[in-house]
Design a protein around this nucleic acid. Structure first.
Length: 591
RNA sequence: GGGGUGGUAGUUAAGUUGGUUAUAACGCCGGCCUGUCACGCCGGAGGCCGCGGGUUCAAGUCCCGUCCAUCCCGCCA
């Protein structure tokens, strides 16, 4: 216990058991109700709020002081906890059985007129206004709660890792730029004209160096930086729980990750994550069309290419002739409620993902289909198609035709879109799964190979002979993503610790030896000095906290977030600096 | 880089086929009120309708551009 605290209690802790207790409270005024002879104020702090009452039992000084009290003033109140009179009890308030009869009200701080009303009446200010005045927004119970959950989750993760022999070690924030991946944030060097530091996209290389350095279980709650366009769940700087283990198996890394996830969920929600099913990447794509499936609901995808191989309907025919696929899924009971407007909106939705269109069909009695899908499905296979899709009278079937790389994301995202639209997703549930066995490489638009994960990801040992063959696209990696409710919350892999294999990967990626030495020489060099087998993963901590709090935006789980154009509206960053400062850094702006 | 939505008192919103002095609620200022609890009642102040052009006798309203916020595509190993 701290010895020098001036408050005796928090606003949120007072209950009937405190009746008769003299208290000193400090907090913000969240409501004032002056009835003339008697006045009330609600005093709020991090822990909750309590009604302060000024009446004939109060001192004259308190009665005078309350006249000057306004919303969001900061007060120190002295008084005594009393039971509220019968009929004056407020059941909507946790401390509604009691009130504090004030004997002294001291205004510690006043406020200018507020830029927005700080209440949770549903109508809140535009996000722009709230971000510009983040210090006020943070007082709202929602953000108070979210940041508390964030703290509890971080401590729970630390607790689990500390208890299993992990060491928390910091790695540099000023580091060097590496090729591939996201754009780097760069920092010019004053001492070395023309040279630049990069902020880390993740501590990846350093954690591998720590393994070579003998710290066989490392973790860090690390800030990461990526200069890419933002989204609902992406910020330019974000936080990872970064983990690396020497002498791992895939099962060990997954066990550690499950331990961390379980600790976070247990500590914040009181319920752990349970047994997490494992799904291959191939199965995830096949069933859900995406590599981070939302498994809180069914509505899985089915492949119809073989059944429809004799179809003549042009979209189907041309897709098949071009080596594409026909896939589809069923929306149960949707035929009645799906107007042309709804179906057109679904069609527009899949077009955003590069799909030419959506062949919908309403299923009626005896399997009669109406709509474009009817033309796509030859009569002789109609029943077989409906059976494959599990479609019956009253359902809507949705088919997509084209290249697999368009059909899967289009239908996969539509599946989730429709589930949200039709309220098919149970609230407050968490459907975790592991997705494993990702491809090692994928073809870029220019035909070159790129890493699906990153260049240090180990191939599955049995696939190593495929290097340099025309079957490189079939190589799988020893990697694993942790997925919850359609969101990738963690990912990692077993790393390459054999310099020969590492060289094969670089060769496959078309990274020359010169470039390898220049960009990663320090890692490759380290790996040649007795590198232990190692592997690990990183949690996207912000996304975990989003799930734990039900936040609808990543900005609601970060104290001082940036806008989608990467500005901090509070501080005004990024900002221009005096030319002299640029001169010192040997930099000149072209704008 | 592309597309959708939004920007009107401090805040949140309304504003009709383009037409008199741009409304309301909350907040703010002044007053009244002894049991309120989103207290209530009376009165008041408060506007570059995001910004810049254009059409028109007339623009918050129509057109073009631009900035900001937000959501999505691309991007994010």
């Amino acid at each position: 216990m701290l010895k020098h605290v001036t408050r005796t209690h928090t606003c949120g802790q007072l209950r009937a058991e405190h009746i008769g207790t003299p208290v000193v409270l400090q907090g913000w005024v969240s409501a004032v109700r002056d009835r003339g002879g008697v006045a009330f104020a609600v005093l709020r702090d991090r822990f909750g709020s309590v009604q302060i009452t000024v009446d004939e039992r109060s001192t004259d000084a308190a009665r005078a002081a309350v006249k000057g009290v306004r919303l969001e003033y900061v007060l120190q109140v002295e008084g005594t906890v009393q039971a509220r009179a019968e009929g004056a009890v407020n059941n909507k308030m946790e401390s509604g059985d009691i009130e504090v009869i004030a004997t002294s009200i001291q205004i510690l701080s006043r406020t200018q007129p507020l830029p927005f009303v700080l209440d949770d009446r549903g109508e809140s200010a535009l996000e722009e206004t709230r971000l510009r005045n983040r210090f006020l927004d943070l007082r709202r119970p929602l953000l108070q709660h979210n940041l508390r959950v964030r703290h509890v989750a971080a401590q729970a993760a630390r607790g689990f890792l500390n208890g299993t022999e992990f060491l928390e070690i910091e790695t540099p924030v000023l580091t060097r730029a590496t090729p591939e991946g996201a754009r780097d944030y760069l920092v010019p060097s004053r001492v070395h004209p023309g040279s630049w530091y990069a902020l880390p996209q993740s501590p990846q290389l350093f954690k591998q160096l720590l393994m070579v350095g003998g710290f066989d279980r490392y973790y860090q709650i690390a800030r990461c930086f990526r200069d890419e366009d933002l989204r609902l769940d992406r910020q330019p700087e974000f936080t990872q729980i970064d983990i690396e283990i020497s002498f791992p198996s895939r099962e060990l890394v997954m066990e550690v990750a499950e331990g961390v996830a379980n600790a976070m969920w247990e500590a914040t929600l009181g319920e752990g994550v349970g047994t997490i099913p494992v799904l291959s990447y191939a199965d995830a794509m096949d069933l859900y069309g995406v590599d981070a499936p939302d498994r809180r609901f069914e509505m899985t995808l089915h492949t119809l290419s073989a059944l429809l191989h004799e179809a003549t309907f042009p979209p189907v025919r041309s897709a098949l002739d071009a080596g594409g696929v026909i896939r589809g899924f069923t929306v149960k009971g949707a035929a009645a409620g799906s107007s042309r407007k709804v179906l057109d909106a679904w069609t527009a939705f899949v077009k955003e993902y590069g799909l030419g269109g959506l062949m919908w069909g309403k299923v009626a009695a005896e399997g009669v289909i109406s709509g474009p899908a009817a033309k796509a499905i030859p009569e002789e296979v109609r029943e077989a198609v409906l059976a494959e899709l599990g479609a019956e009278d009253g359902d809507v079937i949705l088919l997509g035709a084209g290249e697999l790389r368009h059909v899967n994301p289009g239908l996969g995202r539509l599946r989730v879109h429709i589930a949200k639209e039709r309220d098919l997703i149970p609230e407050g549930t968490f459907a975790f799964c592991w997705v494993v066995d990702f491809p090692l490489f994928e073809k870029a638009d220019d035909g070159s190979w790129t890493s699906v994960h990153h260049p240090f990801t180990a191939p599955r040992p049995e696939h190593i002979p495929l290097f340099g063959t025309d079957r490189m696209g079939e190589m799988l990696s020893d990697s694993y993503d942790l997925v919850c409710n359609g969101s990738e919350i963690g990912g990692g892999s077993i790393r390459i610790h054999d310099p020969v294999v590492q060289a094969q990967v670089f060769e496959a990626l078309g990274i020359s030896e010169t470039e390898q030495q220049e960009k990663f020489g320090f890692l490759l060099n380290a790996l040649s000095y007795g590198a232990p087998p190692h592997g690990g993963l990183a949690f996207g901590f912000d996304r975990c906290v989003m799930l734990l709090t039900g936040a609808t935006s990543i900005r609601d789980v970060i104290a001082f977030p940036k806008t989608t154009s990467a500005q901090d509206l509070l501080s005004g960053a990024p900002a221009r600096v005096p030319t002299k400062d640029l001169d010192d850094l040997h930099v000149r702006s072209t704008k």
